[in-house]
């Protein structure tokens, strides 16, 4: 009788925990596209070993262009209304700058040492989001008539796939100012954008989150992905593929690249929750593979590195 009660309580608690579980919410951020920055002169040019390279100067765009602020503000407002407040890129850039300044000034009270930062940490200090809403618009002029061609693309920051879109050219007007036309463009396109985003989320809840898994090795490790293990002399690369097939949702993944030194798996569909009902991301999912490789019979020490919700890399041969 007691056992039955304990089992019943357990089942109820598990049901409640699963019922209240929430998947990891992706962050979204509106970013002016390279094309828009280039057309409006917000680019930085530098010499990269003889090649002129242009990169967008977002900070200057936000400081000098009122239209971009208007459009981003309107998009932010409409997304917040749908329960998806966006990260504001301008604020993210300012926060990064102030954090960097504080980190430079900070020192330990006891030893006077500074805050530790590896070159990788420094590289990662950029404004980022899980889904980038890339914004482009152009003002078309035919005589006195003006119209706006508007393009908003939702890009998954990890898989590089376009997951949502809204694009089109508005009605030409003789009298309306550009900000009015821009406002109309946002109003007329946002429903389509959120509609396609909803389709993406529906697919994610049904088929799992799509992530990228990379396998690499340290230079000084004497093994590689062709090293054979077990009685049937299975190659390590195939063993990893088998693990993914067993653990991905419906076994769905694609092996994009596989060499002795590296492997790249794309379109890996991972469950949104683990067996405990907790929300997981790429890092938590690949942690399982990392543990399998670390333990017997493979005994391969490895390092797991992550990039946001959707990208994880295992580097074989050490931490």
């Amino acid at each position: 009788m007691k056992k039955n009660i304990v089992a019943l309580v357990g089942i109820v608690m598990l049901t409640i925990s699963l019922g209240f579980s929430q998947a990891k919410k992706p962050t979204l951020m509106v970013v002016p596209s390279d094309v828009w920055c280039n057309q409006n002169g917000y680019m930085l040019t530098f010499d990269n070993q003889g090649t002129q390279v242009k990169v967008p100067d977002y900070k200057r765009a936000f400081q000098e262009n009122a239209e971009v602020l208007q459009v981003i503000s309107q998009i932010n407002g409409m997304m917040a209304e749908r329960g998806f407040p966006l990260k504001n890129m301008e604020s993210a850039i300012k926060t990064l700058e102030s954090n960097a300044a504080e980190d430079n000034m900070r020192s330990s009270k006891d030893t006077g040492s500074g805050v530790s930062e590896s070159p990788i940490d420094a590289l990662k200090k950029v404004a980022k989001a899980d889904i980038i809403m890339q914004l482009t618009w152009t003002v078309n002029k035919t005589g006195p008539k003006k119209s706006i061609t508007f393009n908003l693309q939702g890009l998954d920051a990890y898989t590089d796939k376009q997951i949502a879109t809204a694009t089109g050219t508005g009605a030409p007007s003789f009298s309306a100012e550009t900000p009015v036309l821009l406002s109309e463009a946002v109003l007329s396109h946002m429903d389509n954008f959120t509609g396609s985003l909803q389709t993406h989320f529906d697919d994610m809840f049904e088929n799992g989150r799509e992530i990228i898994v990379r396998i690499q090795k340290w230079d000084d490790w004497d093994g590689d992905l062709e090293t054979e293990f077990g009685d049937d002399d299975e190659e390590l690369g195939v063993i990893i593929e088998d693990w993914l097939a067993d653990n991905a949702v419906k076994g769905r993944f694609s092996t994009t690249d596989m060499t002795a030194d590296m492997a790249l798996f794309e379109q890996v569909r991972i469950p949104l929750f683990n067996e405990k009902g907790r929300a997981i991301d790429a890092r938590r999912f690949v942690k399982g593979l990392s543990k399998v490789l670390k333990n017997e019979p493979y005994s391969i020490p490895n390092k797991l590195v992550m990039k946001g919700l959707g990208r994880a890399t295992i580097i074989l041969g050490g931490k």
Binding site: K24, R82, F84, D202, F205
Partner: peptide, 22 residues
């Protein structure tokens, strides 16, 4: 009033909100 209409249908569970499940 599409936004209000959508919210009404969401509250009734007929359609899913964009942030549902997160």
């Amino acid at each position: 009033a599409t936004d209000q209409l959508r919210k009404r249908l969401e509250s009734e569970g007929i359609i899913k909100a964009l942030s549902a499940g997160f």
